[in-house]
Amino acid sequence: MIAIVDYGAGNLNSVKKALDYLGADVVVTGQPETVVAADKILLPGVGHFSSLRALDRAGLREALLQAASAGKPFLGICLGMQWLFEGSEECSEVAGAGIFPGRCRQFPSSVKSPHVGWNSLAIQEGSRLLQGIAQDSFVYYTHSFHAPVVSAMTAAGEYGLQFAAAVEHGNIFGVQFHPEKSGDVGLAILKNFCEV
C-alpha cells in the first residue's frame, strides 16, 4: 500500500487519480501511524515551503524519517522533493529532512518566475525511477524555487541555470516536476515507483 501524505497543503486529487489509474493500492492519510505502516510513501506538495511546517505539527516528520530510514520506497514530488533537502530560501525557519545536501533557491531574475510548463529532462544513467524514460522527454513543472545540483541527481533541468529535476539515493526518490500532470511519460515514472 502506498500512503499519500496529506498535510493540508494544496490538492492531492491529481496524484491519487494517477495512482488509481495505474491500479495501485493507495491511501491518502495525515496519520503518522498509517504512514509508518505503509509499504511506500509519496509526499506530494505544491505551493510555499512554509506549508511543510504542518508536517512537524502533525507529528508526520518523525514518521516520514522513520519510514525512509527503514528502507521503504519514498517519493517526494515538487515541494515534497524540496523537503528532502536541508531547507529552502523560501522559508528559512522550516527545516527540510536533510537527506540530500544543500538548500533550495530562487531562479535567477533573468527568467520569469514561476517556471511553468513542459521542459526537457537530461537523464543520467542508472536511475530506477526513470528507467525506460527516453532522453529529453518532456515533463510539466510549476515552481519558483529549485533544488541544487547534487551527486544524487538523476536528471537535470535547465531554466536560467541547471537544477535538479530528479534525485535518487537508495530507496529515496524526488522529482521537481509533476509526473501526475506529465502525460504518458509521467505515468510511466509513477508506474516505475509502484514497481520499485
Binding site: 494544496g10 490538492n11 505544491v46 505551493g47 510555499h48 514561476p114 511553468v116 510549476t142 515552481h143 519558483s144
Partner: peptide, 12 residues
C-alpha cells in the same frame, strides 16, 4: 486572488 493563492498556491 490572494485568498485563493494563499490556500492553493499562486501556481493555481
Amino acid at each position: 486572488i490572494g485568498r485563493i493563492a494563499g490556500r492553493f498556491g499562486s501556481q493555481a
